[in-house]
Design a protein around this nucleic acid. Structure first.
Lengths: 218, 218
DNA sequence: CAAGAAAATGGACAAACGTCCATTTTTACT
DNA sequence: AGTAAAAATGGACGTTTGTCCATTTTCTTG
């Protein structure tokens, strides 16, 4: 058992990290000060230095936490996917565009950290490993698809399809960042599958990508 | 003629804007202070208040300037493109990925502002109008392509192709931000054209994406 | 239950921030 | 050349920043 002491300790650490993420999401990095953080966390000034050794380290820990959370969510979703590569790709795309992953809070946080990534190497690394793991999952799936489809230059085709899919997802996130109100998840995934269907007609079909319930035109 | 007075005035305004952009590119927004700016510009403290009425306004002006610069560069490039829609798309894609537009400085600046865009509405607007103009240019081209190709549901197809192409470009920029050393412009545009070729086989060919002689078929 | 250790507090502190303005310097006009 | 206006200077100002530590509170252990 953890013991009440250790329990409180961890709880306060988490409260600080949560406060940073809330503040970054709402006010941005530049307005996330020590005062802002401790006020949100309802804790005292000294806690940041005590638990993390300084504000920068805390922010770094928060970035790490956020990154882990994102990937864990996506991986959990992927567990529920079938074995076929197209199912896995579809699950990743839909997962990456789902409310749970792609929402105002996450997007604000993600882009805020990215904007400062150039200067905070530690932050940039998490951003990297996240993308690295995601890339591996997608590349795996496309390797199999390409092999099954007998596409010429299989290696290059799989790499390009992976590259393109990741870029498309990235672009959709940016869309959401800039126009959260107008953003349409269905449209975003339809666009991606339209590209994929054109590239691998035997594995992806446009209609299959659209939930049967909803008609196309609007 | 402008007069030496007005000339100096404008020169100093530009020096301040340039200093902001340099600092943002190198150190990030959070480390871009008034002291940093005036030191880079080689001017005195009071100039920021005199010419722009405060630091925030200056930063806003810098964001505007950067945005204009980007679009002007792209538009200039587009002037040299032919009339055919595929040529125009190709020019936009290649232009957006060219050294002149996509370089460390621009990318750092762009993402730094984006990261804070949520809080600085004025900054977000420039980001928006930029994308709006770009979107218009691409959509125009795809509308013609779709019509020529006789794609079913022409309106939706053009919109999706536009959406996807913009997302792809956006994704490539992110690639560059995170891995400027490993980034390969040729690969990036090849990936994009691979997707476009799959979607519009009659207008884009993968080999044709590497400067074609086949162009302008009509 | 007492004693010791760990955790939490909140204020002191220097440094850095952006704003503003009294003063000096530069330019334009008579 | 002399004068008025505009531009530029740089320091003073009040805030706010992040760090750190002497003190108090809370929990654990013997």
């Amino acid at each position: 058992m953890p013991g009440k002491r250790e329990q409180n300790r961890e709880q306060n650490r988490q409260a600080l990290i949560g406060a940073v993420l809330d503040s970054v999401a709402e006010k941005g990095i530049s307005e996330t000060s020590v005062s802002e953080i401790i006020q949100r966390a309802g804790l005292s000034r000294g806690m940041i230095h005590l638990h993390f050794g300084g504000k920068d380290k805390l922010v770094q820990a928060a970035a790490h936490h956020s990154s882990e959370e994102y990937y864990d969510g996506l991986e959990a979703l992927l567990q529920t996917a079938g074995d076929s590569p197209q199912e896995r790709v579809e699950m990743i795309v839909r997962g990456d565009l789902s409310e749970r992953v792609l929402n105002r809070r996450n997007v604000s946080i993600w882009y805020a950290f990215r904007g400062e990534a150039r200067n905070r190497k530690a932050v940039a690394e998490y951003s990297d490993t996240r993308d690295g793991r995601l890339r591996g999952m997608i590349h795996n799936a496309f390797s199999r698809i390409v092999r099954e489809a007998g596409t010429p230059d299989a290696t290059g085709a799989a790499r390009d399809a992976t590259h393109g899919t990741l870029a498309l997802l990235e672009g959709m996130w940016t869309d959401f960042l800039l126009h959260p109100d107008q953003f349409d998840r269905e449209e975003a995934s339809r666009v991606i599958f339209r590209f994929l269907a054109a590239m691998f007609p035997t594995h992806f079909s446009l209609k299959g990508a659209i939930p049967p319930k909803q008609a196309r035109a609007r």
